[in-house]
Amino acid sequence: MLKSRLFWPVIILLIILAINLFFDPGFFKIEVKNGHLTGSLVDIVNRGAPLMLISIGMTLVIATKGIDLGVGSVIAMSGSIAAMTVVQGMASDTSLTPLFMAIAAALGLSLAAGLWNGLLVSRIGIQPIVATLILMVAGRGIAQLITDGQITTIYYEPYSFIGGGYLFAIPFSVYLVAAVLGIALYMTKKTALGLFIQSVGANPEASRLAGINSKNIILLVYLFSGFCAGVGGLILSSNVSSADGNNAGLWFELDAILAVVIGGTSLMGGRFFLMGSVIGALIIQSLTTTIYSIGIPPETNLIVKAVVVIIVCLLQSPEFRQKVLRPRMKKPHKKEPENSLNEQGVKIS
């Protein structure tokens, strides 16, 4: 149990949630109101949905030793184009057609963004951090171009269902997360794809020589990351029934990377933990909720985040464990066989 990479993230999440119990004894209570589940826990999951989605995409990108800085801009672009499609479509139509057109436009644009990143990284061979930086800068400009720099408000009931609706008493966004997570887990655990991604992350050249089409694997993970960001952008803009090219999804890329790192995936690529990233995203969301609910000034949110990042990274750093934690841990275990393997990235079991 202690060996599991999920152990520490889960413990941290539970501690954060437990802190709330001191201040609000009804924190864990879940009620049914008007046929909707309500409660702080439901709220955390609901509000954390976009971040969870984007972290899932980001996990696979990071597993290939890449990084996707463009997701925040893709969120803004996806939300903007969906909102503009709805606004234009509504004039003539009150049926569900504008909704599907908006979804198609948003996902199409996000996939195009993912394809762009993927091609730059896999075909032209640009360093991921640089390749995706281009979209991070330009994408927000494109999003503002789409909305003409305005915050567009949408008055269209079906659109707000994506981010604010309930299906069988559970927020609809939760189903979206579950679906994407399910697909990602199935593809990486039940097919060889997961192994391919790990292997590309550990050593792209060796993987190519072993007969894996590294380039297409890399292209695929950026496409998937773009798709996740697109769905996240739909949820975010639908939740507030508006599109803001300037501020939607601002700094989401950093939060998502943070969630992935907290979840135990190394930025060096290789082994990845989708569930870990989802828990990481939940940790970030519950941290925010906790800070608001127990009355700490929200300004300190960033400081707490900074401290958590450093602690989590230090706990995962082999050097730190050796220098600081090892002296005390030496007596009970004589040796720790697994540690050096984890660092390598790939452990084929």
Partner: peptide, 24 residues
Amino acid sequence: HFYNLQPFIVTLAGMFLARGLSYV
């Protein structure tokens, strides 16, 4: 240097910290 952490993540934390301190 000492703990071999990634510059990206460490300076990201520095970014959060400095911004947070100025809000405080």
